[in-house]
Design a protein around this nucleic acid. Structure first.
Length: 705
DNA sequence: TTAGGGTTAG
């Protein structure tokens, strides 16, 4: 009697402890704390199979498949759940072959094992393999049918999916929601709505799916009506509604939804950061960001992206540094964002660091991120490194080929670009419209008129790529640079689509080079109609008037600009020194702490340049100001300030890399050529359009830009 | 402790 009394609670205690240990492990693993989960497991005296299974699954859930396998191999005994955990764990980590091996050797299979394997093939996009397995299943339940249904939908085989759906012996909410979502994806809202209306029972998930369906298909107002009447809302449904508004640019309403949400989930906050960012309300984005107590990787990358897109590159970089200080390990999406920041800001040192992180996280085998990486190296002016990364990558896709072709084009390496293009074609990768923009601009930068013409013609005939305005713009540029202005004008007249600002801009640029005032006025007039707020055409035209000494016309233009409140966007240049970016605006060096040194360097250069026979070219200054003032404003152009600072700071033998937000001015171009000569330094300047490699008194663009 | 549906991001 006594033993019984004692034994019973003891056994009850033991079992209870074991169960709670197991569920504790599972909970920790779900929270991403797999190492703590492992500690709990190690401390357990009695380890039931379930606890082993929980640890194995936990490792898989946290993307540590090798440790999961090690635990599995060490298990004293295994049941079907253990084997199923192994199969589904491999599936979850995209290791389909491993999953299949485990599936083939497992001693006993049940519906779960089969379904996990079918799901694995679906996840890999191997839908036919999934179908084969599905029809071999000894027994199926609603879940297995639903997995197969999802596979067909994912494959875009929506009508086949419907046939399968009709064959299902039992349909529950999940299956119906799947079918409904499939129709929504295809834009077949009526069929989706029919399934929704005929559902015997609806839950939050299917209401949300229907709302998303309407929102994604430009029916956000219908979505809102459903949202108002749905019986129960959760964070996800609020977020879906919010997204519906942000995606169609209705930020006011998105913001209202956001304010009304009882619980502001991380996802909703992230969406709102991006939503405000879209409209350029960067401060509001930041307010949401600062308000969040809990942030995920998406939060950081959203805020970084907003900064990057809206031209707050330094803030983006600061935030990335802060993220790392707070110990947040950047994962795939934020690394992509920050690589784009590095590319647009051209901070090579930061970019290199990110590259190292990619290698450490094994992301360097991804085609997509590698293309971003190549672009980053190119935009930082490090073509050699870009090519090394490119060559090392195995099977390349169009985007990667495009990155390197466009890169060569921007650096003025026309021959190389064309060679890579040939290589691409013989590698059986079909060029797309982006490829041709790269190839044609390569021809244009190197003056290969005939090659360009041939390629332009082959686009349609050989590669079945319809030329778009960008391609016409390239051709206008190509002909225009070669001085064939009338041919360029004829091409524009013959365009099947309306010429846009880029096309007219190309013509205007060529008119500037060849001093053709008549055509310039035609192009500029068109441009002022198309983009009245853009300062570019005013400036080009006024430079043209100025260089012909027509100061009354210059004054007229300036009056027009003022009355339409158009202002010249201030030119600025920057340079990275020891992982810090230094920004300079024209005429203003005083804001920099080392302005005294910079001015002294400029004085010194001035003497050296005059000795080398340099005379400043005042035609590049917009205003009709007196000669001396003009020369003064030339001397302090932002690119010159940045170059001077680079000469002070960058060690001898290292190239000086300077970036500018506008096109380099002609005077600076000739000055920097000479600076490269008299100082014996290599200077790489990235302007808004392309790269200039200055060495020994000449530039890689051969004065043709 | 193992298999299915709705929200963000590149």
């Amino acid at each position: 009697m006594r033993t019984k009394l004692v034994a019973l609670p003891r056994r009850a205690f033991c079992t209870h402890a074991a169960i709670s240990g197991t569920s504790h492990i599972a909970r920790l693993a779900r929270l991403g704390q797999i190492d703590n989960a492992r500690r709990v497991f190690d401390q357990m005296l009695h380890k039931p199979i379930a606890s082993w299974n929980a640890v194995v699954s936990g490792y898989f859930q946290n993307s540590r498949p090798y440790e999961a396998r090690e635990m599995f191999d060490r298990m004293p005994e295994r049941n079907t759940v253990s084997w199923n955990g192994l199969v589904s764990g491999y599936v979850r980590n995209g290791m389909i072959e491993e999953a299949r091996k485990a599936f083939d050797v497992m001693p006993e299979r049940n519906v779960v094992s089969w379904t996990a394997m079918v799901r694995g093939y679906v996840r890999q996009g191997m839908v036919s393999a999934a179908e084969v397995l599905f029809w071999q299943m000894p027994e199926k339940n609603v879940v297995s049918w639903t997995v197969m249904l999802g596979g067909l939908i994912q494959d875009g085989r929506i009508d086949e999916a419907r046939r399968l759906f009709d064959m299902m012996p039992v349909k529950d909410v999940v299956a119906r929601t799947n079918m409904m979502g499939g129709y929504c994806q295809e834009g077949r809202l009526d069929e989706a709505r029919e399934i929704f209306d005929e559902m015997p029972h609806r839950n939050v998930v299917c209401w949300t799916a229907m709302i998303t369906g309407y929102a994604q298909n430009d029916r956000v107002d219908i979505a809102r009506k459903l949202f108002e009447v749905m019986p129960e809302k959760n964070e996800v449904s609020w977020t879906a509604m919010l997204m519906g508004y942000t995606q169609c640019g209705r930020i006011e309403e998105a913001s209202e939804i956001f304010d009304a949400m009882p619980v502001k989930s991380v996802v909703a906050c992230n969406a709102m950061i991006l939503g405000f960012g879209q409209r350029g309300e960067v401060v509001k984005s930041r307010q949401v960001f600062d308000m969040m107590r809990e942030k995920d990787d998406g939060t950081w990358s959203a805020m970084i992206k907003v900064y990057e897109r809206k031209g707050f590159e330094l803030e983006a970089l600061d935030l990335f540094a802060m993220m790392q200080r707070e110990g947040v390990r950047p994962s795939f999406p934020s690394l992509i964002s920050i690589l784009s920041v590095c590319a647009s800001l051209a901070c090579l040192d930061q970019g290199r660091q990110v590259h190292a992180q990619l290698i450490r996280s094994h992301f360097d085998f991804d085609v997509y991120i590698t293309s971003v990486l190549i672009t980053m190296y190119i935009k930082c002016g490090n073509l050699v490194k870009a090519k090394v990364v490119f060559d090392r990558f195995g099977v390349k896709d169009v985007v990667m080929w495009n990155s390197i072709i466009t890169g060569y084009a921007q650096h003025g390496l026309g021959e190389e670009a064309l060679r890579v293009f040939q290589e691409m074609c013989s590698s059986m990768t079909l060029p797309d419209e982006v490829t041709f923009v790269g190839v044609l601009s390569a021809c244009s930068y190197t003056g290969k008129v005939n090659e360009g013409r041939e390629i332009f013609d082959s686009m349609k005939n050989k590669y079945l790529v319809e030329p778009q305005t960008e391609h016409y713009a390239c051709m206008v540029d190509l002909l225009g640079r070669a001085g064939r202005l009338n041919e360029a004008m004829d091409l524009i007249k013959g365009m099947p689509v309306e010429a846009d600002a880029v096309v007219w801009g190309a013509l205007l640029g060529a008119c500037r080079t060849y001093m053709n005032l008549d055509l310039a006025e035609v192009a500029a007039k068109k441009l002022l109609e198309l983009e009245p707020e853009n300062a570019g055409p005013y400036i080009l035209l006024s430079n043209l008037y100025a260089s012909k000494g027509k100061w009354t016309d210059v004054a007229d233009l300036r009056r027009k600009m003022r009355s339409r409140s158009v202002s010249k966007s201030p030119g600025c240049s920057w340079i990275e020194v020891e992982k810090k970016v230094h920004m300079f605006t024209g005429g203003d060096s005083r804001s920099h702490p080392e302005h005294v040194g910079i001015l002294r360097m400029l004085e010194k250069l001035g003497v050296l340049l005059r000795q080398a026979g340099y005379s400043p070219d005042g035609s590049f200054v917009l205003h009709d100001i007196d000669e001396e003032e003009k020369l003064h404003s030339l001397r302090y152009h932002s690119e010159k300030l940045a170059v001077a600072f680079g000469l002070l700071k960058i060690p001898e033998g290292m190239p000086i890399r300077v970036m500018k937000n506008l096109r380099v001015c002609g005077d600076c171009h000739s000055a920097i050529k000479l600076i490269a000569k008299v100082t014996g330094r290599e200077i790489i300047l990235r302007d808004a359009n392309r790269f200039h490699h200055f060495k020994d008194g000449s530039c890689s663009c051969r004065d043709y830009w």
